[in-house]
Simulated assay, not measured.
Amino acid sequence: MSSEFEEIKELFKNIKGIKLVQTAPYIIEIMNEEVSKAKGIRFLQSKLKIKNEDIVITGDNDYEMLSQFDNTFAIKTGSKLALSAANKTIDEVSEIANYIKY
């Protein structure tokens, strides 16, 4: 993460109930601290009774989501954090088919 992002986070540190996420070099998302893609997927998993091994996750800047599931793929142009969280690194989403067992 950039030092500029850390400076911006510092400006918001006293605002309760929010979180900041840097999703690209010049994009910072500000959201409710309870919101995340991972929580949304877990909600659907519970409601639809989907087994963990049947969930496949891909992303390029989604560290939180990639770090919480087993079958995860980061796009090679993604953030360092996302790449560190994923189980596999791929060039494009279509490559996931090479890893899925039907």
Results as ranks from 00 to 15, higher is better:
residue 90 I to A: 06
residue 87 N to R: 11
residue 27 I to P: 01
residue 27 I to Q: 09
residue 74 A to I: 01
residue 50 I to Q: 12
residue 36 S to V: 04
residue 1 M to Y: 06
residue 20 L to Q: 11
residue 83 L to S: 01
residue 99 Y to D: 08
residue 39 K to V: 07
residue 76 K to G: 04
residue 42 R to F: 07
residue 76 K to T: 04
residue 102 Y to H: 05
residue 43 F to A: 09
residue 57 I to R: 01
residue 36 S to P: 03
residue 98 N to P: 05
residue 9 K to N: 11
residue 59 G to W: 02
residue 81 L to Y: 05
residue 90 I to Q: 08
residue 60 D to G: 12
residue 35 V to T: 15
residue 43 F to D: 07
residue 48 L to D: 10
residue 20 L to M: 14
residue 47 K to L: 11
residue 101 K to Y: 09
residue 98 N to M: 08
residue 93 V to M: 09
residue 31 M to S: 15
residue 42 R to A: 12
residue 84 S to H: 01
residue 97 A to E: 07
residue 16 K to F: 06
residue 90 I to P: 05
residue 14 N to C: 10
residue 78 G to L: 00
residue 65 M to D: 00
residue 51 K to F: 08
residue 19 K to P: 06
residue 83 L to K: 04
residue 36 S to F: 06
residue 68 Q to S: 13
residue 73 F to T: 04
residue 58 T to N: 00
residue 20 L to H: 08
residue 65 M to F: 05
residue 48 L to K: 14
residue 42 R to P: 08
residue 21 V to H: 05
residue 44 L to G: 02
residue 4 E to D: 14
residue 96 I to Q: 03
residue 100 I to W: 09
residue 19 K to E: 06
residue 7 E to N: 11
residue 72 T to A: 08
residue 102 Y to I: 06
residue 70 D to E: 15
residue 74 A to Y: 00
residue 74 A to D: 03
residue 34 E to L: 12
residue 58 T to H: 03
residue 75 I to A: 03
residue 66 L to K: 02
residue 29 E to L: 13
residue 3 S to H: 13
residue 3 S to I: 10
residue 40 G to K: 10
residue 98 N to L: 14
residue 44 L to S: 11
residue 82 A to N: 02
residue 97 A to C: 13
residue 73 F to Y: 04
residue 56 V to G: 02
residue 4 E to F: 12
residue 51 K to W: 01
residue 7 E to C: 06
residue 87 N to S: 09
residue 65 M to R: 01
residue 51 K to S: 05
residue 52 N to L: 13
residue 15 I to Q: 13
residue 28 I to F: 11
residue 63 Y to Q: 02
residue 74 A to L: 04
residue 101 K to S: 05
